[in-house]
Design a protein around this nucleic acid. Structure first.
Lengths: 208, 208
DNA sequence: GATGGTTTAGACCGTCTGGTCTAATTGGAC
DNA sequence: GTCCAATTAGACCAGACGGTCTAAACCATC
């Protein structure tokens, strides 16, 4: 934790990473392959052709670089979901919402698998590390499916024999595992697989 | 890679780790919390109260220790599945097999969550590392569900609209995610959750 | 051109890493 | 007790790590 450095200045439009494209790429590359502790700052700097002085001047420390990078990724990921919310989405049709979310998640994953990997890798970091990152965002910034699931149970779309938390977990497991289900990444495959996954979540695999 | 050291001697009944219970515990602890590269050998040694000389004498290097530990874990995990195979299991009933596998996986996870974590963490290691480990086992040692799935598709238990590989992947995703679905770990909860998961995989979550 | 803040370069620091090596200790065979 | 191999202890090594710091370079303003 560096003194006299305001990490908040790294977020949003003034994110200094926007001015260092090579650093951004090098960071995403390294942090998607290794955990935060395992990733080598020296390696990132070498790849990006940046000096240590510059990095510490702009980002404070290793954590600052990670935070700045994550902010860009989060923004990128959200950009895949904004269209959904604008297109007059009917959030009362749970499975339609699920299918669109699944497709958006796959699009994001295919567009840059490194970012998808990085998101999943973050979930494996220590609680302290994740909490420290979360402290820079408002609590409801990352809303999960839990709310919609509860709604869908009440409206009778989801069978009430399952506890809502169970369903929410299952949905999140499938969303974070899309990379294991997509093969080529071609647009038509994504559409088909997204439909298939939702179909599976909806009706299961037994013969019908 | 250490010269003149036979890693194969670490496996099976003569696994030297069996003679160093504290080392075994320390290793499982560290390797379940950190990746192979991230884990600290010095920390393990300190915790186990063992000297560096001893470790390198018995295990060759860090990799040897990991291999020996993994061998014990694999054996432990298999011990949860042997009973299934012996009890005159009807492998033609896919969903019965699935439920028993699910329950065994949960039992294993609850008995020692560190081992379950470690198995999952291994899947995140580099391909080289995993291949190096796999080279010490016969190819069919870790059989997946793929064969049974294909069988179940042919016998009409699984809907043929899904590609068998898709179903196999989905099953493996759920099996590796049991820790996200089990809460207390009490025996009755495990039974219920195992049934619930299989029910979900079979029929989905839609109202019926 | 002079001034002064911003940015960059990279030598350097203490710490930790996995691994090596040698000397001391242990323990069974005779 | 003697011998010798197996085992243990831990000092030591080179290299990598994140981070600090100072001096140079840059650049806008006048």
């Amino acid at each position: 934790m560096r003194k006299n450095f305001d990490y908040h200045a790294l977020l949003g439009e003034k994110n200094p990473l926007l001015q260092f494209p090579k650093l951004k790429e090098a960071a995403i590359d390294e942090f998607s392959r290794k955990s935060f502790a395992e990733a080598s700052l020296n390696e990132i700097l070498k790849t990006a052709g940046m000096s240590k002085g510059s990095l510490y001047h702009h980002f404070g420390d290793k954590f600052g670089l990670y935070l700045a990078m994550l902010d860009l990724i989060v923004e990128k990921k959200l950009s895949y979901f904004y269209p959904l919310l604008q297109d007059g989405l009917d959030t009362s049709d749970f499975f339609d919402l699920l299918q669109k979310t699944m497709k958006a998640t796959m699009d994001f994953m295919v567009a840059d698998p490194r970012m998808h990997h990085l998101s999943n890798r973050l979930l494996e970091e220590s609680v302290e590390f994740r909490n420290r990152l979360l402290s820079f965002y408002t609590p409801d910034y990352f809303q999960t499916f839990a709310a919609y699931v509860r709604q869908a149970v009440e409206s009778g779309q989801i069978d009430s024999r399952y506890p809502p938390e169970f369903v929410a977990q299952v949905v999140e497991i499938m969303l974070s595992s899309v990379h294991k289900l997509v093969r080529t990444g071609e647009p038509e495959e994504l559409l088909e697989t997204a439909a298939q996954v939702v179909d599976f979540i909806k009706y299961g695999i037994s013969r019908r």
